[in-house]
């Protein structure tokens, strides 16, 4: 129903939780490696740098951050307002110190980002990154999160209580599984 669809979009725009539903709908379609549809190459490289600065995990390859950039690109491709927000935002990043953002030192990049925290562009990129980056099953492995468990029979026989570096609770507090 179109009325319902519009309402959902309004919700998505109004909440920082929002990005979740969007990402769930778009990240599956994102190709490996950056095949950008709406953004130019410079914007893509700038966003890649920015997303790494926002959530810096040094041992995660660029590939995982590219997934985030592709989510932003897909949104820009489908929404002129988002495309403009990103284009203007990249220009602001480049203009902040008169040197392109991608060429700034890490300290200077952080200073630029901190000064932009309340900017809708910053909010958009941060909100999208915090969802898209940590919602990637390939990234889950890096953090030791095992994802869905039902298809493997849950954890009843796969370590739900395998912690051995503290003592066992009393049987009264924690009865054996039935």
């Amino acid at each position: 129903m179109s009325a319902k669809g519009m309402n959902r979009r309004q919700f998505l725009q109004s909440s920082s939780l929002a990005a979740g539903a969007t990402v769930a709908a778009t990240s599956g379609a994102a190709a490996q490696g950056m095949g950008l549809k709406a953004l130019d190459d410079h914007s893509g490289r700038t966003l890649l740098k920015m997303t790494r600065d926002l959530y810096p995990h040094d041992t995660l390859a660029d590939l995982y951050y590219m997934v985030v950039v592709e989510v932003l690109d897909a949104e820009a491709a489908g929404n002129d307002d988002t495309a403009r927000l990103i284009k203007d935002g990249v220009a602001k990043l480049d203009g902040a110190m008169g040197v392109n953002f991608v060429d700034l030192s890490e300290g200077n990049r952080l200073a630029v980002l901190e000064a932009m925290e309340s900017d809708p562009f910053f909010q958009k990129v941060r909100g999208t990154t915090v969802v898209a980056l940590y919602n990637d099953p390939l990234v889950w492995r890096h953090f030791g999160y095992e994802g869905p468990s039902f298809e493997y029979g849950g954890y009843i026989d796969r370590g739900f209580d395998d912690l051995r570096w503290v003592g066992e609770p009393s049987a009264d507090a924690s009865p054996k599984a039935g």
Partner: peptide
């Protein structure tokens, strides 16, 4: 009805 068995998160809390 018996209680549920405690998981790893519970073991840390309990300790």
């Amino acid at each position: 009805i018996p209680g549920l068995p405690g998981n790893n998160n519970f073991k840390v809390m309990y300790t």
